[in-house]
Structures are given as C-alpha cells and as structure tokens.
C-alpha cells in the first residue's frame, strides 16, 4: 500500500500544496467506528476521487470537510485552517469558498431553477439584478440547462436536477468543489456530460475537486489522484493507473467489482441453512 501523502503533510504544507488535509482522524456515529486514524491530503488544483465500498464513510468524509460534523480525534484542515476550531461565523466564511453537489441535488423545492442557482448570490452578495441574471444564465449555459431556467425542481429528471445543483455549486466561483456520487443514476449521456463538466470546471476555474463515487471506470478517466477507503482507513492511493495495478486484494476486488474478496458482500449473519429452517423471526 502506498503511504498516504497526507500523513506527511504538516499544517503549513497543507495550506499551500494541499487544499484539504485530514490527519489521524477518528470518527464514530452512535458508537460505530467510521474512521480510525484516517489520513488524506488533497492536492490543490486536482480532481481527487474518493472511492470505496458502500458504508465506508465517503459521504461522512465530505461532511467532515464542510464542518457539518466534527472529528472525535485528529485534524481536518481546509486551506491550512483547522475546521474544528472555527466558530459559526468563520465556518460559514470558509463554506462560502466551497461548493457541494449533493447526491440527490438537494434543490430548494419552492424555488424554480433560476432562483435555485441565484440562491447563494442573493444570500451572500448584493448584486444588481442584471448581473445576477447574467451570472445565473451563464452557469446554466455551462451545464446545458439555460432553457430550463423557468422549470420547478419537480419538473426535472434526476440528471437535470444534478446539473442544476452543479450550476448552483459553482455560481459563487468556489475554490473547492465537493461532489457526492455525481454519476449515480445518470443515463450514459448525462454521465458523460457531468464527467466532462467536472474536469473542465476544475481546469477552467482553477479549483480543486473532490469526487466521492463508486463509478471506478468513469472517475478513472478524469481523476488526477484517487483514494480507496475501507475499514475506516485509506487502503490505497495513487493515480487511476496505480490503483489498477495495485497488489492489495481489497483494491483489486473493488477495482474489478468482484463479489469474493476481503470485503464481504454479505452483512454478518448466522448460518444460512440454520436460519432458513428456524421458524423464529430474524433478529
């Protein structure tokens, strides 16, 4: 296994070379360990993929970075600043420099597409209406949905909602973009469009992108670096090519989508035959 570069990065380095750095992070929900000594460092200006089997805490990782939850131990640094040490005002200041694409889009259902994209501008910037209009239409054009500006979220398909949410995430020109399962449930055309958008937005805007995903093949085409999480830790990191040739059985199982391997497909359960013959209710 490659040693995670984040473990070597000090706070000063984290602010310069690494836009996000997690060091020795422990985190548990309701007593269940999610992360144990997690070390990750995201290089500035890169597209970094966070992959791993379901339930390994990929989305929780994004929530740690945005300060929605706090680590039990260890540090989460964004631009060299420890997120845990921030008050509400400072945390909100930091979040203004981030954009996040939620798995289901999380569009505000009482606002139309235009107003959803305009929402962060109206909340944070006192701009003339003409400028708001120009900015919103430009971002909608970037995601191919300028023509859908007047639609309500209920009228959008899952893929369209995701693209509107992407337009909203970039409307404040963030430094960091976080994507939670951006390809889930998309048709091949939308998937290709979103994939190219992630890469082109990253390069055109000079931002850093963190993409949480299961879709190994798609993300391998655009990611500069990837991390694979399992058992609360990083089990592998490197370029997509590095991971394909990785000797670890966990990484091999994940990259090739194999049912058999160190990561069990089945949730822990008693013997199948015994349970089938037992008349009691499963506990």
């Amino acid at each position: 296994m490659n040693s995670p570069s984040g473990s070597a990065a000090g706070p000063a380095d984290a602010g310069k070379e690494h836009v996000v750095a997690l060091g020795g992070v422990d985190f548990a929900i309701d007593g269940k360990t999610v992360f144990r000594g997690l070390d990750i460092a995201i290089r500035r200006g890169s597209v970094t993929a966070i992959m791993g089997p379901s339930g390994t805490g990929k989305t929780t990782l994004l929530r740690l970075i945005t300060g929605q939850v706090q680590a039990d131990r260890g540090s989460v640094r964004v631009d060299g600043v420890d997120v845990a040490g921030l008050g509400r005002r400072e945390l909100y200041g930091l979040r203004r420099r981030m954009g996040m694409l939620f798995q289901n889009g999380a569009l505000l259902t009482d606002l139309d597409v235009f107003e959803n994209v305009a929402f962060p501008l109206r909340e944070h910037a006192r701009l003339p209406e003409r400028l708001v209009r120009a900015l919103v239409l430009t971002k909608l054009q970037a995601v191919g949905l300028r023509g859908a500006a007047g639609l309500m979220p209920q009228q959008l398909s899952g893929g369209m909602a995701r693209r509107v949410a992407l337009a909203r995430a970039i409307v404040m020109d963030p430094d960091i973009l976080l994507y939670d399962e951006p390809f889930a449930g998309l048709d091949p055309i939308s998937m290709g469009v979103v994939m190219r958008l992630i890469r082109s937005l990253n390069d055109a805007l000079g931002i850093s992108s963190i993409v949480v995903t299961h879709d190994v093949r798609e993300i391998s085409q655009i990611a500069d670096a990837s991390y694979i999480l399992s058992g609360g830790q990083v089990v592998a990191e490197g370029t997509p090519a590095d991971l394909r040739d990785h000797p670890s059985p966990v990484v091999k199982q994940f990259m090739e989508g194999l049912a058999d391997g160190p990561v069990s497909f089945h949730y822990p359960a008693p013997d199948c035959a015994t349970q089938l013959l037992d008349r009691g209710r499963p506990t």
Partner: peptide, 22 residues
C-alpha cells in the same frame, strides 16, 4: 421535515446560509 429529509437544510448549511435564519 421534508427539507431535512431531502438534504435541503444541509445544502443551505453548506452554502453558508443559516437555515434557522432563512
């Protein structure tokens, strides 16, 4: 409740908008 269930409240928090206030 539905705003909470569909991540709209979380989205506001990430957009640095206080859902209590807004």
């Amino acid at each position: 409740g539905l705003m909470r269930a569909t991540d709209q409240i979380s989205a506001m928090e990430v957009m640095a908008v206080d859902p209590m206030r807004r």
